[in-house]
C-alpha cells in the first residue's frame, strides 16, 4: 500500500487523474485530509452553522475532483479550493440575498458579563456577522485560513492595498465591538 502522506499535491493530483481504485480514493482522501478542515472552517465562518456551509463545502471538493479528472491545470490546491468555495458562496448569496445582521441584534451578547477566552473566541465569531461581507471575507481568509495579504489579493482578485484596508478595518471594528470584554478581562 502506498504511503500518500509523502506525496506532494501535484503527485496526488497525477494519481487521482490516472489511477483506478483504490489508489484514486486513497490519493483523494489524502488531499482531502490536507485541506478539508481549513475549507470547512472557511465555509462555516462565511455561512454559520446552517446546512449551507456543508453544501458549499461538499460542492467545493466535488468540483476539485471533476477538475482533476478533466485535467484542469491546478497550481495550488489550497488556492483552488478557496477560490472555488468563495465563488460558490458568492453565487449562493446572490441567489439567496443573505441579510446583514444588525448591530443591536448581537450587542447584548457582549454586555454585563465576565468572559473566558473560549467565550471570547465564540463572541469574535458572532461579531464577524457585524462586518461588511468584504471585510469579513478578508478577515476569515487572513486569520482562519492563514493567507498572506498577497494571497488574499490573488484569490479575491483585488489590489493588495484594498486587502490591507479590509483586514485592518475588520480587525479594528471587531476590536471596537469586543472592547468591553477585553477591558473586563484586563481588570480581572
Amino acid at each position: 500500500m502506498n504511503n500518500y502522506k509523502k506525496y506532494r499535491d501535484n503527485d496526488l493530483i497525477a494519481v487521482i487523474a490516472t489511477s483506478k481504485e483504490p489508489q484514486k480514493s486513497m490519493a483523494f482522501s489524502e488531499l482531502y485530509d490536507r485541506y478539508s478542515s481549513k475549507i470547512y472552517l472557511y465555509c462555516r465562518k462565511v455561512f454559520g452553522d446552517g446546512g449551507f456551509a456543508e453544501d458549499i463545502f461538499q460542492e467545493t471538493f466535488i468540483q476539485l475532483l471533476k477538475s482533476i479528472e478533466n485535467n484542469v491545470n491546478i497550481n495550488s490546491v489550497k488556492a483552488y479550493l478557496l477560490i472555488t468555495a468563495r465563488n460558490l458562496s458568492l453565487n449562493f448569496k446572490r441567489q439567496n440575498r443573505v441579510e446583514m445582521v444588525e448591530y443591536n441584534d448581537l450587542i447584548h451578547l457582549f454586555n454585563d458579563r465576565t468572559y473566558e477566552m473560549k467565550e471570547i473566541t465564540q463572541l469574535v465569531d458572532s461579531a464577524l456577522e457585524l462586518l461588511s461581507e468584504d471585510q469579513k471575507e478578508a478577515f476569515i481568509l487572513q486569520v482562519y485560513n492563514g493567507l498572506s495579504y498577497a494571497e488574499i489579493a490573488s484569490i479575491t482578485d483585488v489590489p493588495l492595498t484594498t486587502v490591507r484596508n479590509r483586514v485592518v478595518r475588520a480587525k479594528y471594528r471587531l476590536r471596537e465591538i469586543l472592547t468591553p470584554i477585553f477591558e473586563e478581562n484586563n481588570k480581572g
Binding site: S37, L41, R44, T121, V124, Y144, R175
Partner: peptide
C-alpha cells in the same frame, strides 16, 4: 487588545473539525 483579538481568533480557528457524516 489587538493581540488578544488575534489569540481569540486563532484559538477558535484550530477547533473546527469536519463532521464524519459530512
Amino acid at each position: 487588545n489587538a493581540i488578544m483579538l488575534n489569540q481569540a481568533s486563532n484559538a477558535y480557528a484550530l477547533s473546527e473539525d469536519v463532521p464524519r457524516n459530512l
